[in-house]
Amino acid sequence: MTYTIAVTDFDFPDLSIESAALEEMDAELVTVDAESPSDIVDAVPEANALLVQYATISETVFDELEDLRAVGRYGIGVDNVDLDAATNHGVWVVNVPSYCEEEVSTHSLSLMLNCLRNVSGYDRAIKDGRWDWTEGKPINRISGKTIGFAGFGKIPQHLMTLLGGFDLDYVAYDPYLSRTELTDQGVDKVDFGELLSTSDVLSVHVPLTDETKRMFDADAFSQMQDHAIIVNTARGAVIDTNDLHTALQRREIAGAGLDVMPVEPPEDTSLIEHENVVCTPHVAWYSEESMAEMRRTVTQDVAGIIRENAPKNPVNDLE
């Protein structure tokens, strides 16, 4: 039997890694270039598995694709997949939970240092013909600052290791970790209000859920210190970007380093054009090595499911 594995959408140069991962399997790799769930249903009604980057995999997909056994998400987040519908239809959803800790933590550090040292601001000034050290004032020493983590999983833990050369204090808000678990790693457990009020730099590492959507809104920014910066390499919708823009305009906080936005690319560019915002295009996950690992891992996992092997990185529970 020839199985059909459909790639709903991708922005990689080609699918050579996926093809290589399927060499020993009788499978046809089909590309869809889907803009909607109906595109997927119309293009590959016989699909046994889907590999998904940004496409929305709604209940309609699970209703219509009767032979579907697995959905593999390129990356960690699965907020574009209807997990309840997948589970109800007996379809495994898998992701790649561990492939870019080094890249995201390094990128978070880069955004932090850029904001703290105003690197981008100096660069813009020089390109505009101004060679003046006062352009970036005020800049203070990094040592002695408090770094706050919203969520303390593998990525912020790795980031803390990278920060080890600085003389810093660490606090974390993570309701799913005990005080002892955090203390053992040199981090003080705080509630959300304390996280906001004590952090000189606040680094966001929470998944996008109903609980965390717009977690950082006008009320949150009003509780932060006026010299604080916020860095987000998690999910864009965790921050209310309109409220963030207002907070920056009112100087309630000093700056932001953003790799993610609620809508990508953003339709309203007023926030990313702000002089105290450093923005990158959802690239924190990326290195040549991490991209190859991500693609190979998810392809092998969905192929295994089709061959009735247990998934290695399940997101939902079909047991």
Rank of each mutant, 00 (worst) to 15 (best):
G186V: 03
G186S: 11
G186Q: 12
G186E: 07
V187Q: 08
V187M: 10
V187G: 06
V187D: 05
D188I: 03
K189N: 03
K189C: 01
K189S: 12
K189I: 02
K189Y: 09
V190F: 11
V190Y: 13
D191E: 12
D191H: 10
D191Y: 00
F192E: 10
F192Y: 10
G193P: 05
S197Y: 08
T198C: 12
S199I: 00
D200K: 00
D200W: 06
V201E: 13
V201C: 10
V201Q: 08
L202S: 05
S203F: 10
S203E: 09
V204C: 07
V204F: 02
H205Q: 08
V206G: 02
P207A: 12
L208E: 11
L208V: 00
T209G: 09
T209R: 13
T209V: 03
T209A: 05
D210Y: 02
D210F: 02
E211I: 00
E211M: 06
T212D: 11
T212E: 11
T212P: 07
K213L: 07
K213H: 09
R214S: 15
M215A: 04
D217I: 04
D217W: 03
D217K: 09
A218K: 13
A218F: 01
D219S: 12
D219Y: 04
A220S: 15
A220L: 05
A220Q: 10
A220P: 11
S222M: 07
Q223T: 00
Q223G: 01
M224S: 01
Q225K: 15
Q225W: 01
D226R: 11
D226L: 05
D226H: 09
H227I: 00
A228Y: 02
I229V: 07
I229D: 08
I229S: 07
I230A: 12
I230W: 03
V231Q: 12
V231S: 10
N232C: 07
N232W: 01
T233A: 07
T233N: 15
A234H: 11
A234Y: 10
A234G: 15
G236A: 12
A237K: 13
A237R: 13
A237G: 09
V238L: 01
V238S: 14
V238G: 13
I239T: 06
I239M: 04
D240N: 14
T241Y: 10
T241N: 15
T241L: 06
N242M: 06
D243I: 13
L244Q: 12
L244A: 04
L244T: 02
H245E: 08
T246S: 04
T246C: 05
T246I: 04
T246A: 14
A247N: 02
Q249N: 15
Q249I: 01
Q249V: 02
Q249S: 11
R250N: 15
R251L: 03
E252F: 00
I253F: 03
A254W: 02
G255S: 04
G255C: 07
A256P: 12
A256Y: 01
G257F: 00
D259A: 05
M261G: 03
M261P: 05
M261N: 05
V263H: 11
V263L: 07
E264Y: 08
P265E: 06
P265M: 11
P265Q: 14
P266E: 13
E267V: 14
E267K: 15
T269D: 09
T269G: 01
S270N: 10
I272H: 12
I272W: 03
I272K: 05
H274K: 02
H274L: 01
H274N: 15
H274A: 08
